[in-house]
């Protein structure tokens, strides 16, 4: 990791000096031990602030999207970041030639408080970046992941009333801070339905019904495009099991329309973007 950090700083220095990049997005150390925060560096003087260690938990894929100028942006990408970038490219959110991707094969990140590997990293299916301009470090062998759908299967095996009670309990704890929406790499709408109270898409009342409306609809908007980066679950201040929603949709997509891995490339249309004449027929 220390080696990767040195290589990263070295490359960042060169790329910023020769003008290839206008700025680079990476991580810097936070105020507390093990804490990191995303960092944008514009000058060579800041290069030593860049770090790469086992606590770089933030997904960087969404940061370049806010810049609608023609500036050239460097992004440090691991597997999840790279898939997020692919998704943004597919959605036409940014042009490929504006990006310079420094790929890092990721060993998995740790929780600063417990020192254990993060849940989202334990369930990771793509540790190597799927798109990059240059690679820092050697590609890793993808380790086997335990059944990602075990929790979904467990909930599905409950009765309808038990399922409702389970989710009512989850959503009753939601405070609608919208952190999951803000951090999600698939959420790129300029105007989100959750901000449109006047139009009636999302009320402002503090109630279970509004929480359910928010939680259920937000996930269905991301839907099959979910990268399984697990950021929603990581940022949730109430610790809600949000990946259980995402994985349900992903599991159904696999069953109904075949295997689809979001962000694996920047051209495959997502399942709800297109159709087949001989799709599963259940509504005759």
């Amino acid at each position: 990791m220390a080696n990767t950090q040195e290589t990263l700083r070295e490359r960042a220095r060169i790329l910023l000096e020769d003008g290839t990049l206008d700025y680079l997005i990476g991580w810097e150390a936070g105020r507390f031990e093990g804490q990191t925060t995303p960092l944008i560096i514009r000058t060579v003087a800041d290069v030593d602030r860049l770090i790469y260690n086992e606590y770089c938990v933030h997904l960087l894929a969404k940061y370049p999207l806010a810049d609608k100028t023609t500036k050239k942006i460097g992004v440090v990408v691991r597997g999840c970041d790279a898939r997020g970038i692919n998704l943004a490219l597919k959605d036409g959110q940014i042009e490929r030639d504006r990006l310079y991707l420094l790929g890092i094969p990721c060993q998995g990140m740790k929780d600063a408080q417990t020192g254990e590997e993060l849940k989202k990293c334990r369930e990771c299916t793509h540790r190597n970046p799927v798109v990059y301009d240059e690679l820092l470090g050697d590609l890793l062998e993808q380790s086997a992941v335990a059944d990602r759908f075990a929790e979904v299967n467990r909930i599905e095996s409950l009765s309808a009333d038990e399922r409702y009670d389970y989710w009512a309990d989850v959503f009753s704890r939601c405070i609608r801070c919208k952190a999951c929406r803000d951090v999600c790499p698939t959420c790129t709408c300029k105007e989100c339905f959750t901000d449109q109270a006047a139009k009636g898409w999302q009320g402002k009342e503090t109630s279970l019904a509004e929480n359910q409306n928010y939680g259920i609809t937000r996930m269905f908007h991301s839907g099959e495009r979910c990268l399984e980066c697990g950021e929603c679950e990581r940022v949730c201040p109430k610790g809600l099991p949000l990946m259980q929603l995402n994985r349900k949709v992903i599991k159904d997509v696999h069953e109904l329309f075949g295997e689809y891995i979001a962000g694996i490339d920047d051209c495959t249309p997502s399942p709800l973007d297109h159709y087949q004449l001989d799709d599963v027929e259940e509504f005759m």
Binding site: I155, E156, A160, D161, E162, R163, Y164, D165, Y166, W167, A168, Q212, I216, F220, K248, V249, D252, E282
Partner: peptide, 9 residues
């Protein structure tokens, strides 16, 4: 439809 059934409808 599967999604709403998952939430107990």
């Amino acid at each position: 439809r599967r999604y709403l059934e998952y939430f107990g409808i």
